[in-house]
Amino acid sequence: MPIKVLVAKPGLDGHDRGAKIVARALRDAGMEVVYTGLHQTPEMIVNAAIQEDVDVVGVSILSGAHMTIFPKIMTMLSDREVDDIAVVGGGVIQEDDIPKLKAIGVREIFNAEASTQDLIDGIERIVAETGRASTRSAQALADGTRVPDPAR
């Protein structure tokens, strides 16, 4: 079963070249890639990640707004109890910011110099480490451990 990835493009800018090349390369590596389109708000990205039940969300940011956008995405994923979905980033992200992003749970930052093979390997490694989101849910069921549901 193919790895499922959401390629998300937040912000008002239209720099989607990288996101599209990534989408195509991941497809060619046998993954199923959901592309959000441009100009996504963090909420749109999180909703898409949930509905599509992806294993990984890849966020491409070139507008400089990454320190605004990533924290919002991470918080929302956590609020909706889907923080088992891994988040990775790419685009123009200053080196100084990378540790800060990792500290809030972003798994990996692939800067402009990363090759598509680096990206494919990185995603496969992350999924191998954390397991598939839907598999974990089904496993919880098989083990008889109900997924905690504080809202009910």
Partner: peptide, 17 residues
């Protein structure tokens, strides 16, 4: 490759929230 790019939701994104 068995991979796919799924782009249909782009056109429905105004309902995403």
């Amino acid at each position: 490759t068995h991979g796919a790019v799924l782009g249909d939701r782009v056109r429905m994104q105004r309902h995403a929230g």
